Computed example of a mutant assay.
Amino acid sequence: MVDKIKALRLKEPFGLENIQVTEMDDPGEPGPGEVRVRIKASSLNYHDYSVAAGHMNTEDGRIPMSDGAGVVEAVGQGVEEFTVGDHVVSTFFPTWQTGPARVADFKNTPGDGIDGYAREVVVRPTNYFTHQPRNYSHAESATLTTAGLTAWRALVVDGGIKPGSTVLVLGSGGVSVFACQLAKSLGATVFATSSSNEKLERYKNLGADHLINYEEDPEWGKTVRKLTHGRGVDHVVEVGGPGTLPQSIDAVAIGGHIALIGVLTGSEGKVPTAKLMAKQARLEGLIVGSCEYQKDLVRALEANGVKPVVDKTFAFEELADAFRYEKDGKHFGKICLEF
């Protein structure tokens, strides 16, 4: 008789009320080039919510969640990178190992195009995982796959941040909070925005230098320029999309860099192209990053001691409640699942 494991599946018609706890066959022993991993934690991203809520196309019965962290239980023939007992974390684009961007869709992304990590055990090729940072919990490690790596690529890989740089982060979600922490660890001055003064205080505790409530100050782009004596910031971590992009362009320095990461305010909208051109700023879209970038991030976190902010943790079976909490926007940093 085949052993069973627990898993969550998205059932049609898609929606949070149709996330089902199910059983599936244990995947068994790994084959050549594969590892068997006992999943211990995951973390929530807006992308995961969009899939679960039916805003993005996926297959009936899909196992959600792109982020997964756990322990290697067995390794297949020829595997040298991992050994039994290693703590590992999943990769967002398993087929993008190194070099410049190779993907423009989610067909090989766990939790979207293929089954994800809302299950107890997976057997996958080694390129689906990297090592976790030393002294990280599984929940902390699970935040790296999507949010941590996105912030790292925006600032370090694409942005080329250096000590003395100025960085603007928008809102208080996982990418923005992680970007604040990374920027401060790299010697940057950080400007943070939020609609909540309580969250701005939390940013202050993380070392953010300038705090702006964007509801009280809707022209925060001008405020950033004033605070920088007319210069603007070198880097903007832009998670809002069309609703915030005009202000981000206002805030960026001549020759600066805007990392376009999110579309929280919509997928289309007007862009002040003349102002962007006049500023000769670089507006660069990005989606997470490669396995090589993730390995670089892990080494950096081991060196600088930065740990992600985990706002709240839910049990595996409480995924729908966790998504509702995320949708309400009350969190600061990351929301995690523990198995």
Rank of each mutant, 00 (worst) to 15 (best):
P242E: 04
A101K: 07
M277L: 13
Y203R: 04
R225T: 08
T228V: 00
F316G: 02
Y49C: 04
E338N: 07
F332K: 00
A69Q: 08
F191K: 01
E216F: 08
H87T: 12
E238N: 01
M1K: 14
Y136E: 11
E81G: 11
P246R: 01
K222E: 15
L264H: 03
R225F: 12
E318S: 10
T22F: 10
K307Y: 15
H229E: 15
T98V: 13
L206F: 08
T265Y: 00
D321C: 06
H87M: 14
V309Y: 05
P242C: 01
A281V: 07
N57P: 09
S196N: 04
F14K: 09
K6V: 08
K307F: 10
P272H: 03
V236E: 00
G329K: 02
E140F: 10
T98W: 12
A74F: 12
E284N: 13
D105P: 08
T146C: 15
S290E: 06
V156T: 12
E201S: 08
S42T: 08
S165H: 14
D26Q: 04
G61V: 05
D328T: 09
I258R: 01
G289Y: 03
S195W: 03
R282D: 14
T150P: 03
L297M: 09
E23P: 02
H47R: 11
C291V: 15
N213Q: 00
I287W: 13
K6Q: 09
G262H: 03
L264A: 10
L168Y: 02
V2K: 13
Q294K: 07
L182I: 11
T143F: 01
F82T: 03
V239I: 06
H138F: 14
E238M: 03
G15D: 12
T244R: 02
E284I: 15
S172N: 06
G329F: 07
F323Y: 15
M56Y: 14
G111A: 04
E326A: 14
V123K: 06
I161K: 06
C336W: 03
E23F: 10
G262K: 01
F129L: 14
E215C: 12
V306Y: 04
